[in-house]
């Protein structure tokens, strides 16, 4: 007779316990034991993003793909030609967005404009280059400041205005490249709050009436200056609502429609909107987070002679074209 062997009276109960232990063990193996992050520690701006999910009068009607690396600068000439510049290359488009010419340029300009006589003004980090229509460099204007970062350029009949984000000023030159003045420096005696540039975006533009408008990105608004550097008027709109500018520093880019309305582009919640530039009154949304769901910011915006709004989108390195639905419908029919 064998000794020490002890048989259970309820072997099925022991088996059941072992199965239960095994199930518990393997189910716990699949769990980390840590709680997933809750709402208190999640950053959620979807409710603000949803504000621009509305019907607009604008529709995306086309795309221009310049096929160049990292395009950053775009402008429209008086003759309606569209210029797009990127890494070592510049492309010019004519009527019906057909490519006219493509030539090599030095490095990658950050901003660009074209004068009535066809001279191209290219803004690099720290200097400006003037090119003729064939891409030949005619002149180079060296930096006049320490740590410059030139982000926008506009040309009037007699003057050239350059936004220097590094020094938070607008440099006013004559057409020969002689520096005339620095606009936008803090001067509380003359009610100039000073241009604030928390991030490297500072844009300016001249409207169809010839007025110089400069973005004050840190104050989330616009300022108009005379050519003697004095401030004419200003308006600021800090808000997450559609009628204002959100984020630390917006708008990032501006342009004017042919009737003088202001087009703005914002980063963060990427939106293109229209304002009355004089009053600062919000008018309508052109495109929002539905059209730009993942972008951090656009590279540039412009308006062509057909009043189409052009947005240089870094996601696909292309120019996206927006126009009024009626115009878009006519085009499609």
């Amino acid at each position: 007779m064998k000794e020490g062997v002890h048989r259970s009276k309820h072997p099925w109960l022991v088996g059941l316990c072992m199965v239960a232990i095994a199930v518990a063990y393997f189910s716990l193996l699949g769990q980390s034991g840590f709680q997933e992050p809750g709402d208190q520690i999640r950053y959620d701006v979807s409710s603000f993003r949803d504000l621009d999910h509305i019907e607009t009068r604008f529709v995306e009607t086309g795309i221009i793909e310049p096929g160049i690396d990292k395009p950053k600068a775009m402008c429209v000439g008086e003759d309606g030609k569209i210029y797009v510049a990127g890494e070592n290359e510049l492309v010019v488009y004519g009527p019906e967005d057909k490519e006219l010419v493509r030539f090599e340029i030095k490095a990658s300009p950050i901003c660009m404009t074209v004068a009535e006589d066809g001279t191209l003004f290219m803004g690099y980090n720290d200097h400006i280059e003037l090119l003729d229509a064939s891409g030949t460099v005619q002149a180079v204007w060296d930096s006049v400041s320490e740590q410059p970062y030139l982000t926008s350029i506009a040309v009037s009949d007699e003057e050239v205005y350059v936004a220097d984000a590094g020094n938070k000023v607008v440099l006013q030159y004559n057409r020969d490249g002689q520096l005339l003045s620095r606009i936008g420096k803090k001067d509380l005696k003359n009610d100039i709050p000073g241009i604030e540039v928390p991030s490297p975006y500072l844009d300016l533009a001249i409207n169809p009436d010839g007025d110089l408008w400069v973005v004050n990105p840190g104050l989330l608004g616009m300022e108009r200056y005379r050519n003697d550097s004095s401030l004419v008027t200003s308006w600021y709109r800090a808000s997450f609502q559609l009628d204002g500018f959100s984020g630390c520093c917006n708008p990032t880019h501006i342009a004017f429609m042919n009737d003088g309305k202001l087009i703005t582009a914002e980063k963060g919640l990427v939106r293109i909107k229209i304002y009355d530039v004089t009053s600062g009154e919000y008018q309508e949304l052109v495109a929002g987070s539905r059209e730009f769901p993942r972008e951090q910011s656009l590279k540039d915006i412009a308006v062509d002679k057909k009043n189409r709004i052009l947005a240089l989108d870094p996601r696909n390195n292309a120019v996206r074209v927006f126009e009024l639905k009626e115009a878009g419908d006519e085009k499609r029919t």
Partner: peptide, 9 residues
């Protein structure tokens, strides 16, 4: 970090 990435520098 997320907020600064979306709206700031």
């Amino acid at each position: 970090v997320n907020a600064c990435m979306v709206f700031g520098n």
